[in-house]
Simulated assay, not measured.
Amino acid sequence: MILRKRPSMLGLFFVLKGSVIQRIWMQVTAIFLIGIAVVWAHRNLDGVVPGLDPTPFSLIGVALSIFLSFRNGACYDRWWEARKLWGLMIQTARDIQRQSVVLEGTPERRQLLLSLVDFARRSGSQLRGKPEAKSADDALAEATRVLSKLETQGRLSHVQALVLHESLNRMNAALLGCERLANTPVPFAYTLLLHRTAYIYCTILPVGFVDTLGWVAPFVSALVAYAFFGLDALAEELEEPFSGQLNALPLSAYATTVEISMRRALGDTELPEPPKAVNFVLS
């Protein structure tokens, strides 16, 4: 995830880190070159590139921008829901940390809280498609076994054990919500329709403005292509909030946050470094 202060007005034009321009510059350049070819052919080859009324192109552009905005909104909702689910995981881990104070100083509490650290780490790996030898479910199962043992021994009352079990259930529900997002993308047909329409529109756009704009048409077409292709590329990144792309969620940082909280509660002094952005990127 990109973490940086907003650049100055001039600096906005030179920011590359986190920008989609690195993914779309070839497409934008291609539209610009097509625009140059269209203007040249219109002026030098009679009848090859006829002049057209730009009004239909303007109307199609408005409609396409609205549909792209809807898709971006849907993809951002996925990204934001994933962020809320991870926020719930971190909050619930801290809840368990406080709820387990009755076990302070016992090896069972250490085992319980460290299982939450394992859960956060393994959840991040699973969601990024890099599962470890043991799954996040195994970490929760270990925590459940600890609680069941303590309840059987009478060291936790039924109410105390129930509260802790409910907290573990919330963490499991948060992970299931993340897995739902990871395994259920935006319908492909919807994505394909907008993607294909944007490319066709930007490719023929210079023809619609060759009469009214002349040699300015390639520049206008490239600017429109930058906006449409950029929105399309950004939606692809937001659609997959757990990927390793620059605008994805920093799952490793979230897991480290959980580890710091749990180990500090256990009295450990050798704690991991707090997550920091490196070159404006928090991973």
Rank of each mutant, 00 (worst) to 15 (best):
G35I: 08
A189L: 14
L175C: 05
I24W: 00
V101A: 12
G129A: 03
V281E: 02
V146A: 14
S123H: 11
R4F: 00
E81N: 06
E179P: 06
L103H: 04
K17T: 01
A255V: 04
A93C: 07
W79V: 03
Y201A: 06
S221I: 01
L68N: 01
F242M: 03
M89H: 07
V49T: 10
R155H: 04
V102W: 01
V210D: 07
R109C: 03
G177I: 00
A174G: 11
E142S: 12
S243I: 01
T191R: 15
R263A: 04
G35R: 09
A225K: 10
N44L: 14
S157Y: 00
S123L: 14
R196S: 14
P275L: 00
P56S: 13
S100C: 11
L282V: 05
V258S: 02
A41K: 05
E259F: 00
P274W: 07
V220H: 03
M171S: 06
D268W: 05
I260Q: 04
V216E: 07
G11A: 01
A277E: 01
P131T: 09
E151F: 15
Y254G: 10
L10N: 06
I24P: 03
L251F: 03
L194S: 05
A189P: 13
N169G: 14
A120D: 04
S69M: 07
V28T: 09
P206G: 03
L12V: 07
S221F: 01
S125H: 12
F188S: 09
R180L: 05
S69H: 03
A198W: 00
Q153M: 10
R155K: 15
L16D: 00
A30W: 04
V102P: 14
S148Y: 15
A30N: 09
F229I: 08
A37S: 13
T55N: 15
V38L: 11
F219Q: 03
V159M: 12
S283L: 12
L164S: 08
R109H: 02
